[in-house]
Simulated assay, not measured.
Amino acid sequence: MKVYLSGEIHSNWREEIMEGAQSLDLPVAFLTPVTTHEASDNVGIEVLGAEENNFWKDHKAAKINAIRIKHGIEQADLVIVKFGEKYRQWNAAFDAGQAVALNKSLIVIHPEEFTHALKEVDAQALAIASTNAQALEILKYVTTQV
């Protein structure tokens, strides 16, 4: 199973899930966006040239990052989206919407206090977890139970 891991980049949640899946010998391969914040933010100007206006800097980066993200979501069988507490991840909500539009199975991870703010996203998810461990258990169940 191919699993795309979308969402916040300020914690090691992806590594926790990937290492957990490896330790359980789950039959999964993971796809991710670029998770180095500086690399993701600066790819446009590093590849296509400097910009005086931050709007165009962000625009270039967003479009280049979208190539990888779109491909990853399209290739995935399952998309896991994590909403962290430090920042609001508008991009993660967009990724969740793309996954649903492409008829991908969606698991959302977020703290309980985000339930109201994410009610539309949650309504489209097949599972809503509050911890990385719960998402890993779901992944274990859907890939190993007979």
Rank of each mutant, 00 (worst) to 15 (best):
Q134I: 12
Q134N: 04
D122P: 00
K140Q: 14
I45W: 08
A96C: 10
L24A: 05
A39F: 08
S130P: 00
V121G: 01
N53Y: 07
A29F: 06
E19A: 15
Q124G: 00
V146F: 07
L26A: 09
F114H: 11
Q124M: 12
L118Y: 11
P27A: 15
Q89T: 11
D77N: 15
G20E: 06
G20M: 05
K119M: 08
L139Y: 05
F55E: 09
E85I: 11
A21N: 02
N103P: 00
N12E: 14
K119Y: 07
E51M: 06
I128L: 07
D77Y: 05
L26G: 07
V43R: 09
L106E: 04
F114W: 09
N54L: 08
A101M: 14
V43H: 09
W90N: 12
Q124V: 06
K140L: 00
I80K: 03
K104E: 04
A99C: 10
I67Q: 10
K63Y: 04
G7S: 05
D25T: 12
V81M: 02
A96S: 12
I64Q: 08
D58Q: 11
A133R: 14
E38G: 01
H116R: 10
N12W: 03
G49Y: 05
H59S: 12
V34C: 12
I69Y: 03
W13V: 03
Q134L: 10
K57V: 02
T144R: 13
R68H: 08
N12S: 14
N132E: 10
K2W: 07
V108M: 08
T36L: 11
A61C: 02
A101Q: 05
N91W: 12
T144A: 11
P111V: 05
Q98R: 13
A66Y: 09
N65W: 00
T144C: 07
S6N: 06
V3K: 09
T32H: 13
V100K: 13
L5T: 01
K2P: 01
A123F: 08
E15P: 00
D58L: 00
A93V: 05
A62Y: 06
N103C: 11
I128W: 08
K86M: 08
L26S: 05
I67T: 08
I9M: 13
Q124A: 11
M1A: 11
A133H: 13
F30S: 03
A62T: 09
T115R: 12
T131H: 07
V142F: 10
L126P: 00
A133G: 03
R88V: 06
H110Q: 01
A92K: 05
I45E: 15
A61M: 01
A39N: 03
E137P: 02
S40V: 00
V3A: 03
A99M: 09
D77S: 10
